[in-house]
Design a protein around this nucleic acid. Structure first.
Lengths: 347, 347
DNA sequence: GTGAAAGCGCTAACAG
DNA sequence: CTGTTAGCGCTTTCAC
């Protein structure tokens, strides 16, 4: 026996295929009696309902949006910030009866192909470099796109906070405590494998919106304080390489004129540094001040001064944008400076 | 202008639609020259490639598998065990060019409908109660299914460890240290909102494979040690309600004949208890021994004696099963007893 | 190497 | 309330 379809049921009941379709998709269009008879036959024949694929082809709607993820999924899930983003996203699309298709973009593979073959109504990208090929593939398919935290693309709805202002405020807070020698620990500026100092040239070629803006914000603040850009030490490290970040931080503190404040561009980085400093019995904020960025739960426990990002709200807004519940343009979301106990006056 | 399809390109190039289809899907079937011409026209017209939906309808393959998730996605992502499971799963299906569609099953909603409308090739369910309606919906659709950690369904591939044996071994380890008064802290036995003691009747009606088996394993061990079932105190609490779990544990320790060992059925629960005990200055394992289950990273740091589950391997195996890379039957996976420092001789 | 026929399973639009 | 018509965009099969 072949597959059971609308037609099978229709033949059996003695009505048209359309009527059976209505029985499932618009139950109110039929008499109770007929609908009951149709469902009965469907149950008997083991028909579970209209094939979603065929329905989608006809209606042009799939009921799923793709999430473009560059890191391995394992990392993405466990990273609290990403998890919150996804949770907010899922929450928003869920109420619109829409699912989330995880689309990993491993560095090796051809991103175009995977974007091309994903059965979705739209995509959300987060924390992608400006020139990531997946973005072009999405636009080639003509599907709706929303970016979170970058890149900021013309006529693509963009969900983020004002990174630059947030970073500037944080830096001003640190500078306000008299600090003049700053070490900035940043994650990826450009998507190569460089680790180490970031000079003006490299900064100018930055491909990550988040990094570029946060660093720009910090430099705005230092300039206003009369500090030359060249005096602000910026070191780049892959977000996952906490070990490198902490080694860099520790090494900097050994030098003759060590930094009096360490500005990490993420809480993960900052928390790692805090751990390393504690292990070396280096007092925070007595000897050195430390700041983070993101506002993770763990940061509160550590008393870390940081910037709170509305991660869940960001995810939710992206979802609402994709499902049409919110229409562009949208404003940048609000951040909040969380002043806690890891910044003090310069010793 | 309408949408650009294979036909549009075919008309423009002056070949048949089929040839254009081949140009994209089986490039080796055409002359280099013709293929180049076709791609050129496609680019010019902004054709990104065959519509995955139409292709799927025709081929019967979607390239996505659905993940049935009962908890909120936010919880699922952040829970380290679930995150590892998903990471393994993503890893396995990713190599088969298949995506992961997250299908949340909120307690309120009709699970049948969401399963019915998901555009996927198969489903993986994890830690669902035996009678969850989503399972029936999947089987009604006739799609492949793999369950992880339960339920164990006839002729459905099942990925898990031997929970009962693992729990028994853990309990035997505790009993081997002379403990006779045990408090077992378990998460959901049945999917109602009961909190508190679990008696034989309730245990008999358990709908969660994991809970049922682990408790059975513990009771096998206690019986062998000559302890009557009724003397083993079992308290049930929702996995997320750490506060209730710790309150229960603390309350039990206040009693005249307090338990000398607390067996928590998950590391999360155990870690919560450990924190609460530390806060009360109750010595572990001096005053009371504690065990967990799962083998999270956090458990190592806390020195928790527990059972290591191969979470990533489980996810990967489920993925391989669904993509056909591994064919049933499959054996239960291996666990490992991790004996650390939270169990000592009874004081 | 290339193409014609056939149809995957469904529903929008409209007529009765 | 029920049915008819007309495809959605693609690929399988099998000729040429």
């Amino acid at each position: 026996m072949g597959r059971v379809t609308l037609q099978t049921i229709a033949d059996e009941v003695g009505v048209s295929r359309m009527t059976v379709s209505n029985a499932f998709s618009r139950p109110d269009q039929l008499s109770d009696d007929l609908r009951r008879r149709i469902h009965e036959v469907a149950d008997r024949l083991g028909y579970a309902g209209p094939d979603p694929l065929a329905r989608s082809l006809r209606t042009g709607k799939v009921g799923a949006i793709g999430v473009l993820v560059t890191e391995t999924l394992g990392y993405t899930f466990k990273d609290p910030y990403s998890a919150d983003l996804l949770a907010g996203l899922a929450d928003a699309v869920g109420t619109a009866e829409t699912g989330l298709l995880l689309v990993p973009l491993p560095p090796g593979q051809e991103p175009g192909a995977v974007v091309q073959r994903s059965v979705v109504d739209g995509f959300v990208a987060f924390i992608l470099p400006d020139d990531h090929p997946a973005l072009a593939a999405v636009s080639a398919r003509g599907l709706p796109l929303v970016t979170i935290d970058g890149p900021r693309l013309p006529s693509v709805p963009f969900v983020a906070i004002d990174e630059r202002r947030a970073a500037r405020e944080l830096a001003e807070h640190v500078l306000g405590h008299g600090h003049r020698r700053l070490l900035v620990l940043t994650f990826r500026v450009i998507d190569d494998d460089h680790t180490g100092p970031v000079d003006a040239d490299r900064l100018g070629r930055a491909t990550y919106h988040v990094t570029r803006e946060r660093l720009a914000g910090i430099l705005e603040a230092t300039r206003s304080a009369g500090i030359d850009d060249a005096e602000v030490e910026i070191r780049e490290v892959a977000e996952q390489r906490l070990d490198v970040a902490t080694r860099d931080a520790l090494a900097a503190l050994q030098r003759p004129r060590p930094p009096t404040a360490i500005l990490a561009l993420s809480d993960r980085l900052a928390l790692g540094v805090l751990d390393a400093l504690a292990a070396q019995d280096i007092d925070v904020p007595g000897t050195v001040s430390v700041t983070g960025f993101d506002g993770l739960e763990g940061a509160a426990a550590a008393g870390l001064t940081t910037v709170l990002q509305p991660a869940i709200d960001k995810g939710r807004l992206a979802g609402d944008l994709l499902t049409g519940k919110v229409v562009p343009p949208v404003d940048l979301l609000e951040h909040r400076l969380l002043i806690r106990s890891t910044v003090a006056d310069v010793p």
